[in-house]
Design a binder for these strands. Structure first.
Length: 277
DNA sequence: ACCCAGGCTCATA
DNA sequence: TATGAGCATGGG
């Protein structure tokens, strides 16, 4: 058992369950998840994080995954522009954006298309159980997220049978194309927001929303502002008196209005809209 | 039974 | 560039 003393604000529960990650589970006092090729369990008691893992995760790895190296206060101050976002910040203060593995993030959000969170969780679990590696830790069983090669080589029919529906082809074809690209995500890290987005949009099953989520949660591009149905309705209601706007307009508004940390505003609003209002 | 889901593709204007 | 139908399936 290891522990980590927190400096800045942090709220583990809202961080893990705000909808940015789909694999965390509560088991008693602990949260269990899969990071890379190991199971990680952790809990928060005031300003201490206790954790343990099947593959000896280090303090530095955990700090990086949870974005504990980020000056959250200054980020929140920059996006805290009005009473709406202020209420959202108050509701889940301490929520941090995770730094998730890019391929897993990309694949997961391709699956998220026109679905709901319980089902997304089930789809991710199903393909992990089928194409990942079995892990066990303290009696908790889960599976690594499948390698790109495994998804690329899967039969579309089988992916459908795992509950992916029309997303099966999107995921398989995207995996095949990534294999041809070679080190896609390594290359993307060097590019600008616009350049990354342009690249991601070329993959099947990837539109603005999936690309923005991949950039925000998988590539730490904090200026990304994903627009889903919740954010669309919420922004229309809170900022435009309910007037309907296209997702593109909502995205342009969000990025311009909230600035370089628009992604944090998006996630605080999303969590707030879903759980408070 | 019914509606909707962290959207996208494709056709049409 | 912008709008609308159709999509596989399951959760609530």
């Amino acid at each position: 058992m290891k522990s980590l003393k927190l400096n800045g604000q942090f709220n583990l529960e809202s961080t893990l369950f705000c909808g940015q990650a789909f694999r965390w589970e509560r088991q008693g006092d602990w949260f269990y998840g899969v990071i890379g090729d190991g199971i990680l369990k952790l809990k928060q008691e005031n300003s201490t994080i206790y954790y343990d893992s099947s593959n000896n995760i280090t303090n530095d790895t955990l700090i990086r995954y949870l974005s504990l190296d980020l000056e959250l206060n200054s980020v929140l101050n920059k996006i805290d522009r009005d009473k709406n976002i202020h209420s959202a910040i108050d509701f889940c203060r301490g929520l941090r954006l995770l730094r998730q593995e890019p391929w897993e993030t990309f694949a997961t959000y391709i699956l998220s298309s026109y679905s709901n969170i319980p089902r997304i969780r089930r789809m991710v679990f199903n393909i992990s159980r089928r194409f990942g590696k079995r892990l066990i830790f303290n009696g908790y069983v889960n599976y690594t997220f499948p390698e790109i090669e495994r998804i690329a080589g899967a039969r579309e029919k089988e992916l459908k049978a795992l509950g992916l529906g029309f997303r099966a082809g999107y995921l398989k074809n995207t995996a095949k194309r990534i294999l041809n690209e070679g080190d896609l995500f390594l290359k993307l890290r060097l590019l600008s927001y616009e350049e990354i987005k342009k690249k991601l949009l070329q993959f099947e099953g990837v539109g603005d929303k999936v690309a923005d989520c991949t950039m925000l949660f998988g590539l730490s591009r904090l200026e990304a502002f994903p627009v889903d149905v919740w954010i669309k309705r919420g922004i229309e209601r809170l900022y435009f008196k309910g007037k309907p706007l296209s997702p593109k307009k909502i995205n342009e508004f969000g990025r311009k209005y909230f600035g370089e940390y628009a992604g944090y505003a998006q996630e605080y609003l999303y969590h707030y809209l879903r759980n408070k209002i």
